[in-house]
């Protein structure tokens, strides 16, 4: 347990060049909802550790400047400077993506796979781990979180900016949403 103890000294404000930003302290406040290292322990909250820096920073700035709707996050990020948002994005992008494989039935997997072939794999990859440059990994992402995100895309009243995602998701039949998120949520590669 104690190995390395004698060989360490604290190094504050590492990971950022801005003197008055302590990104570790800021990032620790995210753990309450996104888990240690950004690996979520709750199915309705997303894992964020290991997502690309550009994606993380873009999403948070869209919330900050009211270009993207959210239930909770938009209020949280409004208190942070753009530099702090960039530092947080850098911090979480440096964690490792740890897919949390969530169980589902063989029937769901089969149905999910066929819907994904047709509608999603071009942009997200067959397993969700090989996305387009502007899309996040979703292999082993929290299933209920993904289902709620897709609900946002399907609801006229919720302002999601990505037009192609919106179009694709609105095309899905009601019964196709659950198998699709179950499939991606079950991946661990």
């Amino acid at each position: 347990m104690r190995k390395g103890v004698m060989a360490v000294v604290l190094f504050w404000a590492a990971g950022t060049t801005m003197a008055d930003i302590n990104v570790d302290t800021l990032a620790r406040t995210c753990n309450n909802c996104h888990g240690l290292n950004g690996v979520s322990a709750g199915a309705t909250m997303p894992s964020i550790g290991g997502l690309p820096k550009g994606y993380l920073s873009k999403i948070m700035k869209e919330w900050k400047y009211d270009k993207r709707a959210a239930a909770t996050m938009n209020r949280i990020v409004k208190g942070f400077s753009d530099d702090e948002i960039d530092a947080l994005a850098a911090y979480f992008s440096k964690r490792r993506w740890l897919p949390v494989a969530q169980k589902t039935s063989a029937v769901q997997l089969k149905l999910g796979k066929s819907v994904i072939r047709e509608n999603c794999e071009d942009c997200h990859g067959t397993y969700g781990n090989d996305p387009d440059i502007d899309a996040p990994r979703i292999d082993g992402q929290s299933t209920e979180y993904m289902a709620l995100e897709l609900e946002k895309y399907r609801d006229e009243a919720f302002d999601m900016p990505h037009r192609k995602m919106k179009k694709t998701i609105r095309r899905l039949k009601d019964g196709e949403v659950t198998p699709v998120v179950d499939y991606y949520g079950a991946q661990k590669r």
Binding site: N31, N32, C33, H34, G35, L36, S40, A41, G42, A43, T44, M45, S142, E144, Y145
Partner: peptide, 10 residues
């Protein structure tokens, strides 16, 4: 619910 599971884990 997701918050609860994460704060308990954290």
């Amino acid at each position: 619910e997701g918050w609860l599971r994460n704060v308990l884990a954290d």
